[in-house]
Design a protein around this nucleic acid. Structure first.
Length: 260
DNA sequence: ATGACATTCTACGAATGA
């Protein structure tokens, strides 16, 4: 089974790219971020025609997350991250699919830093850490996939020294990510490719994709049950080179069927 | 230090992103 995460950067503006990618790679489960569309403007019919059931939590102009499942039922568990009823950003949605708990997240960017946006990011991280710990305690198969807006290590950024003061790479942000991993989660890409330069984002400026000046910020964190079933992980890098592409590339894992 | 690019909207520039 293939599970993918993709920050689409506008689900309607990028719909042709999204549909082409779904048709080409046929992932079984897809976590989408940055829909940039209100709830009623999600392209439900086009997604259904492509063979996918979907749940989503939209928001006007910004944010927005969705989970798609190819020929499988989605049972929605929640559509916001617990811990702050005042937080109205659509950044988290969670469903049970085929016996797995799948959390789809769009972690705040945090720039400019320091400032209130970084503080919001760090608070969001604390809430996410608390929720992740609760999920681990359930002792069930869990996948937390999405745009974490963090490069975990220097291997994950084309020019680390340029990014040390940025909200995606500041020490406290990297520490917040590591704190969650250390609960007992597996960073799927890094487990299977420990020394390889792998990016999931290239910005639109200065031919970043052509120069491979990228960042690894889209991640899969796996609970032990899913970690034991991990077969492969990678990035559909060529999609970033398509016309009208998002600035992110789809990132995916393959997992084995559970043992009976 | 800035801006390069691309998205969205009771738009025609501003806010946001990473």
């Amino acid at each position: 089974m293939r599970i993918a995460t993709y920050n689409v950067n506008g689900v309607n503006g990028r719909l042709p790219v999204l549909l082409r990618w779904l048709e080409t790679t046929k992932p079984d489960v897809v976590c989408l971020q940055e829909l940039k569309a209100p709830q009623e403007k999600f392209p439900e019919k086009a997604i259904a025609d492509a063979g996918y059931n979907a749940i989503w939590h939209g928001q006007k102009s910004w944010n927005g997350v969705a989970i798609l499942a190819r020929g499988m039922e989605l049972k929605e568990v929640r559509r916001s991250l617990p811990g702050d009823d005042e937080d109205l950003h659509s950044r988290y949605i969670e469903a049970i699919i085929n016996g797995m708990l799948v959390g789809c997240l769009y972690l705040p960017n945090g720039n400019p830093a320091p400032g209130p946006k970084l503080e919001y990011k760090l608070r969001w991280f604390e809430r996410f850490a608390a929720h992740a710990a609760e999920l681990l305690a359930y002792d069930v198969p869990v996948i937390l996939a999405g745009d974490y807006n963090v490069m975990p290590t220097e291997l994950d950024v084309y020019k680390p020294e340029r990014w040390v003061d940025d909200a995606l790479f500041r020490p406290e942000v990297r520490a917040a990510f590591k704190n969650i991993v250390d609960q007992g989660w597996t960073d799927a890409i890094r487990k299977l490719h420990p020394d390889e330069t792998i990016y999931t984002f290239w910005d639109y400026f200065r031919n970043a994709y052509g120069r491979n000046a990228g960042l690894r910020i889209d991640h899969f964190l796996l609970s032990p049950h899913i970690d034991a079933r991990l077969l492969a992980a990678g990035v559909d890098k060529d999609v970033r080179g398509w016309e009208k592409s998002s600035d992110h590339a789809p990132t995916w894992i393959e997992i084995a069927d559970p043992e009976e």
